[in-house]
Nucleic acid binder design. Sequence first.
DNA 1: CGTGCACTTGATTGAAGTCAAGCGCTGTGG
DNA 2: CCACAGCGCTTGACTTCAATCAAGTGCACG
Lengths: 187, 187
Amino acid sequence: MESLQKAIAAISPLSDEGMSAFSQGWKHWSTTKDFVLLKENTISDYIYFIEKGVARIYYYKNGREITEWIALDGQFFLSITSFFQRTPSYLTIQTIEPSHVYGIHHDDLMKLAGEHHEIERLLRKMVTASLILSQERMDSIQFESAQQRYEKLLKTSPQIVQRVPLTYIASFLGITLETLSRIRSQR
Amino acid sequence: MESLQKAIAAISPLSDEGMSAFSQGWKHWSTTKDFVLLKENTISDYIYFIEKGVARIYYYKNGREITEWIALDGQFFLSITSFFQRTPSYLTIQTIEPSHVYGIHHDDLMKLAGEHHEIERLLRKMVTASLILSQERMDSIQFESAQQRYEKLLKTSPQIVQRVPLTYIASFLGITLETLSRIRSQR
DNA sequence: CGTGCACTTGATTGAAGTCAAGCGCTGTGG
DNA sequence: CCACAGCGCTTGACTTCAATCAAGTGCACG
């Protein structure tokens, strides 16, 4: 809970009152390896925060599993489209290590955002940060080589490379397992 | 002004009071062809709305011009990173037709968002919509062929194809002019 | 009327995907 | 306790899509 509050405060500081109201909205799960938080084809009701552990978000495209996101200790994650548009998600979310996860329900969050201007602002800042990240990632996919993307990952999130199987990392980088393997071997 | 108000209301309805406060924040420009709204290396102070005309957002990458976005009548556009992070923009924004453009200054918008909860909510919804779009675009760049991307553009924004030079369209689609030309010829 | 811009066409290259086979570890059942 | 099934990863041969480089065409307008 404390790490969650810290992560929130880092995005947009809340008053004591706002923080306490907000904190009460979150549920907690202790998950096993390969525990499914969100099943494909269901509406994603939660924004999650991973206190400790690893989660991955993936979907199927042409019969293949695509890992869209990997979240480690201290990160927020969700199925953006499903959560905000309230449509069934094509994504699955699972923890790939035993993990501690918090989640806030869509309706609770929207209620809080409606009642507290500062929570609305927090939410806006969270979405803005996501948007900036999304733009950077698009740029990376469009203009960087597989090699460069892997090296950037090594630099920015070495933990992912240590804790996550290569298959997942490859599709997270937008390349095949074979290509990743070749990149790793040549040096 | 009316089209701007309509576009705003479509995202998130505002009270009369909120709408009137908000409306006052916007400036108006009548631009010529190739008029520069935002210069590279300056901080982007405005969110723009194009009432009539065409704007394009571009930057240089390895000595080449990359068109990142094309906005037509009735759309909002901005340099996301620069506007929200208050850092110099690597982007240039220009109207490529004589256009009518509205813009709201960052500081005015933030002030309004701080004073009016409903404007904060509107802003959050705008950013959310952008985020969803950004995700869709990333998916398209990663998994669709040049052919498919062009056909999708033809279907979703036939106006762009009619009003914008192919050079810009090509880099907007993430392909070269030559590839686009070949796609168009074979059929 | 010719200079340049917008676009086309051709030849070649290259990065990464696909398909296929193989290796080595681990854990489970006979 | 060994054997082998399967997972996670590597390696090889081949293909493909689109990029690059290089000319060329046609039209617009100054």
